[in-house]
Amino acid sequence: MAEVTAATVKELRERTGAGMMDCKKALGETAGDMEAAIDWLRTKGLAAAAKKAGRTAAEGLVGVSVRGTRGAVVEVNSETDFVAKNEQFQDFVRTVAELALDGNGDVAALAAARWPEGGTVEEKLTANIATIGENQSLRRVGVVEVSEGAVVSYVHNAVTAGLGKIGVLVALEGNGDKAALEALGKQLAMHIAAANPLALRGEDLDPALVERERAIASEKASESGKPANIVEKMVDGAIAKFRKENALLSQLFVMDNKTKVEDVIAAEAKKTGSQITLAAYVRFQLGEGIEKKESDFAAEVAAAAGVREPA
């Protein structure tokens, strides 16, 4: 009997496009025989899902769910926007967001979580691929929590309650009026959806991203012909501006475009007579970072028919 390892599961998944848990089960059922495992997946009706696994899934939905002082946001992708309007797909995303509340933000753990009606999340997803007829994937999950205060969600371009194109969670620590915290959280979430901050604070920005900006600023400054010490100051100024404009707390609040977000929070804390801390936030925008495959339908049809395009 061949050993079932993470490497063999990965290989089977790459060869078939089937779900991770399905691949693991297939190898277990076939004593680790790779070819037999492929056949096992086919006999279980997973071949249809496997054939679709190579297609780019960059559409879909972002779903949010909040329970008490804990919130979760998930992104589930599909090939076309049409599927986002499918009630079966919407129910799946909604349920996954609720299940994510009991997790730690790990996608693999969420995929392996128990589905309410039996099986796992990944098994349910695989079944959906087969019945809906499009490749789908559970791409990512985020979870925030506070010990005391409020976690507020906001969905931009919502197609239905809790589901849309942009999902935001805001975690506010505080022991003041709950309604005031909720109202502030909603405004901050709307700001985050619009302004797309890259980090909570300037020092939290990705070092690689900062260095990239520094290289660009340095090249621009060096073209000015100014002395090296002046060029250095110009670069430092550009980086300081970049940090300020891309860190949430130092961004100008979109509601008035003149007050920094951290000052908005401080003003609300003073107004309510209680301490308020923006502990964390998560912003998921559907498909961000996914390279969509562009296709020319007319050219594809012509190619299939053996017709050459005019030179």
Rank of each mutant, 00 (worst) to 15 (best):
L138K: 15
R139W: 10
V146Q: 03
V170C: 00
E123S: 08
V168E: 01
H191T: 07
A189K: 02
N128S: 11
L200P: 09
N257T: 04
A247W: 04
Q187C: 08
I239S: 07
L163D: 04
R201P: 05
R201V: 04
R212C: 09
I216P: 08
K244D: 09
L125P: 03
A247S: 10
E219T: 15
R139F: 06
G176W: 00
R212A: 07
K226H: 13
E232W: 14
P207G: 15
E173W: 02
G185Y: 00
F253R: 08
N128F: 11
K244P: 02
L249S: 04
L249N: 03
L188W: 01
H191W: 08
E134V: 14
E173V: 10
I230P: 13
S250Y: 08
A183I: 09
P227K: 03
T126M: 06
K186L: 04
L200R: 03
E148A: 02
L248W: 02
L181M: 01
S137F: 10
A180W: 06
I132S: 03
L248K: 07
V159W: 11
G167Q: 08
E148C: 14
L188Q: 10
A183N: 05
L205S: 10
D177T: 12
G149D: 06
S137L: 09
V144M: 05
I230Q: 14
E211F: 15
L252W: 06
T160P: 02
A189N: 04
K244F: 03
N128M: 11
I239G: 07
G167P: 14
T131E: 15
P227I: 04
R140T: 05
I216M: 14
R201M: 11
R139M: 14
L138N: 09
L188R: 00
K241H: 10
D256T: 09
A195E: 14
E145G: 06
S218M: 11
G202N: 05
L181H: 00
E213H: 01
V168S: 04
G174E: 00
E219P: 13
E182F: 14
G149N: 01
S224K: 12
M190C: 13
E211L: 09
N135E: 05
L198S: 06
G225A: 10
K220T: 15
S222C: 12
I192F: 06
R212D: 13
I239L: 10
G142P: 10
A193N: 06
K233N: 13
I192N: 08
G237T: 12
G225K: 15
E182G: 13
E203S: 08
T126Q: 14
F253C: 01
M255H: 05
I166E: 01
A238C: 13
E213L: 11
D204L: 15
N175Y: 06
G176I: 00
D177S: 12
E223P: 12
